[in-house]
Design a binder for these strands. Sequence first.
DNA 1: TTGAAAGCGCTAACAC
DNA 2: GTGTTAGCGCTTTCAA
Lengths: 345, 345
Amino acid sequence: MTSRQLAALIGVSQSAVSRAFTPGSSISPAMRERILASARELGYQPNAIASMLSTNRTNIIGIVLSDMRNPFYPGLIERLTQGLQRVGRQSLLFNVTPGANIEEQLQAIRQYNVDGVIVVAATILSEKALSWAIEGRRSVLVNRLSLDRNITTVCVDNAAGVSAIADHFHALGRRKVGYVAGMTKTLIGRERRMAFVTRLAELGMTLVGSAAAGEYSYAGGHRAAQELLAEGSRPDAIFFANDILALGGMDALRDVAGLCVPDDVAIAGFDDIAMSAWPHYELTTFAQPVSDIVERSVELICNAPLGDGDARQEILSGRLIVRRSTVGAGGGPVDGDPRQSVKVA
Amino acid sequence: MTSRQLAALIGVSQSAVSRAFTPGSSISPAMRERILASARELGYQPNAIASMLSTNRTNIIGIVLSDMRNPFYPGLIERLTQGLQRVGRQSLLFNVTPGANIEEQLQAIRQYNVDGVIVVAATILSEKALSWAIEGRRSVLVNRLSLDRNITTVCVDNAAGVSAIADHFHALGRRKVGYVAGMTKTLIGRERRMAFVTRLAELGMTLVGSAAAGEYSYAGGHRAAQELLAEGSRPDAIFFANDILALGGMDALRDVAGLCVPDDVAIAGFDDIAMSAWPHYELTTFAQPVSDIVERSVELICNAPLGDGDARQEILSGRLIVRRSTVGAGGGPVDGDPRQSVKVA
DNA sequence: TTGAAAGCGCTAACAC
DNA sequence: GTGTTAGCGCTTTCAA
């Protein structure tokens, strides 16, 4: 049923029907109520496609993502789409895969004329492909940085996070520290490493070894942890660039190297994914402020000014979650409750 | 830039431009090439919205899902959207949450006039809300059954899967079996339980205890496993309705009950999520044929006939993956390789 | 406040 | 094979 048909049935003009469904339009309450009532009764709903064509707005936000296998992302995506739904937006999903032609995959962003693009693809996507895809529309990079200050980003405070981990290692008396990176070429990868190393130096601790997994995966962490030990270094604490790496690494250190966590080596990660709280791991980690990330991203993608030079780089506070992978059972700063949480600005 | 503008620039009619972008349309190769070349040069791309309005086709598939937290789903969703992208379709995501008004959330399916709906929401969504949302368009339920034979479903062979688990337990000499259900009210939940119990009976094994987690989660499995033991039953094998339950259950059996897996109790799950292969778990499970599920779903959502009575219920074969949670290290039917895989029709 | 009318950018039926 | 024309179902002027 179209607005014209409904209008004919109840004897008003087609534009009256349109107005009834347009908040703030110039229509009398009585007219609106009458139209909405008949619409409900007859099952009329405005056709969003036609409305898009007229208004040049789609209420659709494109979500570009690359690695659903990192367990941190599904939860984020879920809450992001729910957040968008709450403000009347729909989510069009773009999974960019390494193999295929990425520009081709992103064509649809332009053809479908999405109102905005939220990019959660930490990896893969080049700045060039990205800026082509989002040209002329609102965009927010989540957990990804850009050298282009005209691009809006929403990101946890990486520097504060890794510093909190370094401080925590220090407070535990650990001095010989290892670092396992994920992807070393991304800006975030570099930022985390840089800030961590800097803080270690400030604290007078030594970086005795490091390795790069090349990808954020359990298998990558498993591999990299062994590489780190194979170098001959014997760290008493290892920081992994994210949780899924840390879980793989922890298993390798225990099962392959026969080390005891945290007695021989303390382990920490970054993100706070669900599995990090599982009893076999009890991973100390720096939790991403997912709610804040979602809230800010939704706000910015809907309301940010479109002009150049108005981009913002938002840095959100995370939280250190201390668990047994660094403090063990009963000992250290934690006793009754194995968990402790410290907000980091 | 619009097709009319492009047409004016190169001195052809607007419909020629449209034809150039329409495969199989009646246009000379020369004309098409000329138009496509100028389009490329001038950066013209057809406006998908306008095309939707004319053709009444959107090339958008709605994906309805509810529990992204079960690690089985992110991977499925990822491959599903990629499969759809490959055939030129886009994925509009609908996250249905327990709290909110579901019909309201699904309105957009109708307003945006999606070509089809793939429902991966094992839970929550009532048959009524569902049939309202998908009324008049193609739909495929993935891993969800329906009593309505007019609805197309794509599902792993649950009966064969749980039977394979029962057979496996039997072959290992286990006779006192426990069962942990997820949601007991869903059709799949019932089917798995029913088929499992039936097969146990055929094999002369006893169901010594069962429990229901109420949700498919690690915490649910952890809780339910303890409930099962609290009943006083002492099973020598437990089948969990899916992997994430099994992982939680396994940790509870080891850490809380102090049992040894698989010596005291063998554990099996269903799905084969990534974590089931992790060394701490090495969970025996029945693997879902994700590639087949994706392939069939994409095919059906694009090409299935629309008429009533043409719905199909496709049952796909899974595969039993035997790991140490049932056969232990070195012993049993598996020695060198801790894995063994058996295709089940 | 309401109705009439002109598009939004495309597709498709129709004439040539 | 190509151009002309009439919509697709809305939104948004413009008059009344």
